[in-house]
Simulated scan of single mutants.
Amino acid sequence: MRTNNICYIASAGAGKTTKVVSDAINKANNNSLKKIAIITYTQNNQAHIRTKLENQNMAHKIIVMGWFEFLLKHWIMPFKTTVFPQLINTHLGISPVEGKSGLMRTSNGKTFVTYKKDDFRKKYITPDGNKVYSDKLSELANEVYQRNKLEIIDRLNSIFGYLYFDECQDFVGFDYEIIKLLLTKTDITCVFAGDPRQHTYSTHTTSKYTKYTGDIASFIQENINKRKIYVTIDITTLVESYRCPMCICDFASLVMPQYPKMKSHKTEDSIEEHCMLVRSCDVERYVNQFNPVALIWDSKAMKNVHTSIKQIYNMGAVKGLDFPHIIVYPTSGMLKWIKNISGELADTTRAKLYVAVTRAEISTGIVVPDDYYLPLDSILKFWESKKD
């Protein structure tokens, strides 16, 4: 029974990236004869991990790569001619795709696939023959595996001793097939870390395994650990947030009530700690007092941001970042939900609100209209500036 593979399900600010990096460094310091790699989807997180490794003078011992790079370099490229013999002298790149590639839309709004089922060249490769569509990378990697099963597994086993996957809630669709192969076919120890509540990105658009979107733990339990335990699911090690005070954890837990309540590792010793609503008429005073970073839905919301705020980020782009004070400019859907915590909220909107409010180390302010009202039993209160 294999129990060396592990999947950490974390809370925001619980230190999952720190855990991944420190574990990888520990293995590297124990003179591992095979390579150790940390793999994650977004470029921001790759840069964040590299900085952590450089700060500990370990960047030369541990490989950091993107998920797409891992698929292209270690699954597709070495065996590409078994699917595309004509590309023997071609070094394939990646063609970024938003949505699904290979679709065309008719004048009446219907879509159709532009390639035949067995036309792999047109399905996976751009017309110039030099790039793989990003939304098809993991599917192509699986196709290549079906033709080179022993060769791919032997090659991976000979290269890697440990693979660490950070922000694993970003995996979807055919990514899960690759993960399943790594866990059940190779001798590589795999460590995953993620927070399903922070599923603001997906590696690609897909209709496969939509039940498990952002929820790798459920996929593992229902599709990998059915007859034999290949992976230990750990929901206790990274449960406490080292970033957020309890007042922020309490509200964040309401945003994602289907998961265990967040806990704070911090002792509340700062009078500035709060998670409160800020009326529009009070925003200027709030900004002057706390100098917060603003979090908005997208560039269209820039017009609403107080002019003296110097740092502004999109809510979906701040995973892994933290700031002393933040101020959130919520969408209309978020404002409606805050009035009725048990009400409906779109999954993506809910995830971005969770990410936004948990970026703060000390205080979170949420901007609301002047005439905004709350039920008497609301966990949130209105911020009021102190009188001079």
Rank of each mutant, 00 (worst) to 15 (best):
K149H: 08
I216N: 00
C244H: 03
D298V: 11
P369Q: 08
G66R: 01
K226M: 08
E167S: 05
T200W: 06
I220A: 02
E273S: 07
I38A: 03
D187R: 12
I38V: 07
N130F: 13
I271R: 14
Y115H: 00
R2H: 15
I338L: 09
L335S: 03
G173D: 00
T267M: 09
N340C: 14
I362Y: 09
E240V: 08
F171Q: 07
E98S: 15
S299Y: 13
Y212P: 00
V255L: 06
C244I: 01
Y162V: 10
K310Y: 06
L72F: 00
P257R: 01
I220Y: 05
V97G: 07
Q146N: 13
V132Q: 06
C7H: 13
C190I: 14
A217G: 07
Y176A: 09
A294F: 05
T82F: 14
I153T: 11
K61Y: 09
I39G: 03
N314Y: 13
T90Q: 14
N30P: 10
T203N: 10
D371G: 15
Y212M: 01
V144R: 00
P292L: 05
M315T: 04
S342Y: 11
Y313R: 03
Q258N: 11
W67T: 03
N89E: 10
V357C: 11
Q86M: 15
N55K: 06
V21H: 01
N157T: 09
T189A: 13
C190Q: 12
L33C: 15
T364K: 07
T210D: 06
E240H: 11
Y124E: 00
K339P: 04
N288A: 15
V97W: 03
K352H: 08
A28E: 04
S32I: 14
D119N: 07
T82D: 15
A37T: 06
T348W: 06
L335H: 04
Y209Q: 01
M315K: 04
H204W: 14
M262P: 03
G15T: 00
K300Q: 15
S363Q: 05
V20Y: 05
S378W: 10
K110M: 09
E361N: 14
I9T: 06
L182F: 12
E54Y: 08
D166S: 00
I338H: 09
G214N: 00
W75S: 06
Q289T: 15
S385A: 15
G365E: 01
S134T: 05
A59D: 13
N130K: 14
K34F: 08
S22G: 09
V318S: 09
I327R: 02
S270R: 11
M77N: 12
Q221K: 11
C244Y: 02
L335Y: 02
V278M: 04
K116M: 03
K185H: 13
L380T: 04
A193N: 07
S299P: 13
Y162T: 11
V97M: 08
K208N: 05
C275W: 04
V172N: 06
M246I: 12
I296T: 01
F120Y: 07
N304T: 09
I229C: 13
K35V: 13
I6L: 11
T40I: 03
F290K: 07
N108C: 12
A360Q: 06
T126I: 02
G15Q: 03
S299D: 15
L156A: 11
M77D: 13
R285D: 14
Q56W: 04
L181A: 11
L353S: 00
A294R: 03
S280L: 11
L92E: 08
V328K: 01
N45W: 02
F171I: 12
I9Q: 04
